[in-house]
Each structure stands twice: as structure tokens, then as C-alpha cells.
Design a protein around this nucleic acid. Structure first.
Lengths: 223, 223
DNA sequence: TGCTATCCTGACCAAATGGTCAAGATACGA
DNA sequence: TCGTATCTTGACCATTTGGTCAGGATAGCA
């Protein structure tokens, strides 16, 4: 997955380097397509998404989309690629030197903000997991697993130092992911149950507050 | 959604009542189809699922499937119908007379058991929510919303009586749903991160323990 | 002003898939 | 045994859709 970040376009380049304007066109079009694809994959799923709809949303004819991304699969992979990067970056606050309470609160808030600002990304990822993660299994068992093991060690260190109630760090992460991403992935359920049309800033603030309170007190980090 | 539970079959009956054996055949076939459909919808999503695959999994020819369920949509609705019933039943432990700690622990354990024993059901529901809940919006905003409002009142009662730390009861439910269902919906991620092939009883026990500990202590229900 | 590489697009195609149909097979009451 | 309602199924069809192609437009360089 994490390979070949730069050559997600179609044709293998061989001749002279492309000129500035051409590069700009390419970048612009690729960006539009990726954005449209993320939205369509999020709302329709991989199978439900059509390249025609993605192209229309991107404002280009379908064959032009296929010029930049040979297959729907390749486009999907590219969308996932961007999302995985986001995913890895979110854990940055969890480091041994940090103060546990502040670090965990920051993590919860970062994940919640991600649910608010990038709901499509979260949904595409959720959909991928839901269907067995065929395209990201390697990533999950590789880079991601290593990262989580790493962060789990940090948590264990805090516990050993008596700064945190004992808990299984991996399952702690699973709960945190679930509790924060649910506001993006299952917003349809949450809005319906709350009787709202959509979730606003206040709702996300309330959500972050509830999760933080529950988790922090649950870990013995609050009176 | 919740209407017409009995006539999910195709032809509108008009003549004499069907005989015992016919009824048995029908029940048997409908059950097989529903079971196969739940599995296929869970792993492929609505769009990705094909009636051919469902029929094959049910061990019948495709036209026979269409004899019992006219359209893929109708079959999907029937599958969801069963799942929604399950969903509503799970909250039974949350009643005003109950002891908060035991009631919440029972709820968490019930939801976790549901994730373990009916992962396909959970996934179908998750997939439906993920894509905007087109088929269950009515249910969510109706029966389910009323139920949750009801249970939220119970929680608020406990809080008012000083038996629980103050918390937004709706968001508490969102966290509980997310934390328990994640083990069914996103098992691909959890197994990959844990480096296991699949989740066993011990994993679910550990998960339930972690969630319980976190939530109960988070609500001030544990030393 | 040519020449080349990149970009754009209308028209098209093959495969997949939801659903139909008509001709049986089966159960069972009369 | 006969008649009817239900059930079964091979063959078939219309539509959708991922992907192709050939020809044209555009940018940039010599």
C-alpha cells in the first residue's frame, strides 16, 4: 500500500520531464478526482460507487477519469492511501514523556475532530474494514500494528509507573477508535436518535466531552 | 419497516389456507434464504451482494429465491427486519428498578455477546447506517428513538439520585454501542492489530472486561 | 512553424446481474 | 384419481457499468 506514492497516475513516464503547466493540470485533476471519489465511495461503498458518478462529481467526462486512474480499484487504492496517512498521524500525542491525562484528552479530541472534518475518509475506511479489509490487510498487520504496539507500550509504561489504572492498552485503543469514529461512520443513526438533521459543532463538543470524561475517569485520571 | 411481518413471501394468498407440509417447506426455505442473505449482505454490502451468490449459499436456484422474495430490496428489508428486532431486545436490563452497576454491566455483556454470536447481523446494520440508513431511517427516528429516550430517562433518574456520575445519557449509549459493536463490525482491524487469525471467546471476554471497567469506573461505579 | 507528449472525449463494447417466464413437479383436499 | 395451489428451474432478457479506442485539442520546445 504505502509504496509508489507519486506514480498513482496512469502512464508510465519515459520521455522528458513534464512541464510546469502540464504538472499543474495533472495535480488539479487528480485532486478533484480523489475528492469526488472519497465522497462517492463513502456514501455508496466500493461496489455501489460508479466511475460515472465520480467523474460527474469531479466535473470531468468518464474517460478522462480513466485516463488518470486506469481502474476503479486503482482509484480506490489511491483514496485509501490518503486516508491511511491521516490515520497514522493521529496518534502523535501518545508519547512516553507526555502527561497521560493531557495526552489522552488530546488524542480523543484529535480523533473526534477528524470525524467532524473528514467524515468521508472515516466512512471509506470503515466500509473497507467492514468488508474484511481486502485492500488494507497488509497495512493493518504491518505499519499500523507496529504503531499500535508501540503506543501500547507507552500506555503500559504509564500503568507500571502507577499513573494510570491497569487496563489492556490494545482494547483501550479499540474503544477509543470506536467511540470517536462512530460519530462519523454512523452519523445517520446518531442524528436520527437525537432528532437532529445533522451534527453540529456543539454535538461534537458534547461527544468529545462525554468520551473524555468517561475514559479519563475510567482510567483513574479524574477525581 | 415493522409492518407486515408475516407476508414477506411473494404471492398474496387468496384461496384456501396452505397445508402443513407446504408451510414447512416455505418456512424452511425462507429461513435458509434469510440466513444466506445475512451472510452475503454482511460481507459484500447491499450493492456488492448478488442474488446468485445468496441463492447458491442457500442451496437453491436463483429463480427459486426470487419466488420467495420478489426483489433484492425486499430480501434486504426482510433481513434488516430481523436484525432490528434483535437490536431493540438488547436494552432490557436498563430499567429504573435495577441496580445501575449490574444493569450496565449486563447491557455491555449482552451487546458484546451479540457481537460474538451474530456478527453478520451487526455488519449488515453497520453497513446500512454507514450508507445513510436509507432503509431504516424511519425505524431509527421512530421506535428506536423512543426506546433510547426512554432508557436515557432511566439513566438520568440514576444520576439525579446520585447513584451515577453526571453524564449525557444519549452519548453514553453511543459510546456503548460503538465500543461493543466494533468487535463485530471491524473485526478485520482488531484481528490484524492483535496479530490473530480470529477473535475467540477469550478476546471477547477481555473486551467486555475492558469496556466494563472503563465505563463503570468512568461513571463512578467502582472504587 | 512544425513536432511530440500529454490531455480530452464521444462513441462503443463485453460482462455481470436483477429479474422474468413458461413449462414442469409436488402436495393434498375432494 | 383428479384438480388446484404451491413450488421448482433452465433458459432468457434488458440494463447497468467498468473499461476501451480512435481521433482531436493543447502545451511546450526546437
Amino acid at each position: 500500500m504505502r509504496t509508489e506514492k507519486k506514480k498513482r497516475a496512469t502512464k508510465r513516464r519515459s520521455g522528458p520531464p513534464p512541464t510546469a503547466k502540464k504538472l499543474a493540470i495533472r495535480r488539479e485533476n487528480v485532486a478533484r478526482i480523489l475528492e469526488a471519489a472519497e465522497a462517492v465511495f463513502a456514501t455508496r461503498g466500493f461496489s455501489g460507487a460508479t466511475t460515472a458518478e465520480i467523474a460527474e462529481r469531479a466535473g470531468i467526462p468518464k474517460p478522462n477519469l480513466h485516463y488518470y486512474f486506469r481502474t476503479k480499484q486503482a482509484l480506490y487504492r489511491a483514496v485509501l492511501d490518503d486516508i491511511l496517512t491521516l490515520w497514522l498521524d493521529a496518534t502523535s500525542s501518545i508519547v512516553a514523556e507526555a502527561e497521560p491525562k493531557a495526552a489522552l484528552r488530546a488524542y480523543i479530541e484529535a480523533k473526534m475532530a477528524y470525524s467532524r472534518t473528514r467524515p468521508f475518509a472515516s466512512k471509506v475506511f470503515a466500509n473497507e474494514l467492514l468488508h474484511g479489509a481486502p485492500a488494507v490487510k497488509g497495512f493493518l498487520g504491518g505499519a499500523m500494528r507496529r504503531l499500535v504496539d508501540d503506543k501500547a507500550k507507552v500506555i503500559e509504561g504509564w500503568i507500571a509507573a502507577g499513573r494510570l489504572q491497569p487496563i489492556d492498552p490494545h482494547h483501550l485503543f479499540f474503544v477509543l477508535w470506536a467511540a470517536t469514529q462512530t460519530y462519523a461512520d454512523f452519523d445517520a443513526q446518531i442524528t436520527a436518535v437525537l432528532g437532529k438533521r445533522s451534527l453540529g459543532e456543539a454535538d461534537f463538543a458534547q461527544a468529545a466531552e462525554t468520551v473524555s470524561a468517561l475514559v479519563l475517569r475510567g482510567l483513574g485520571l479524574k477525581a
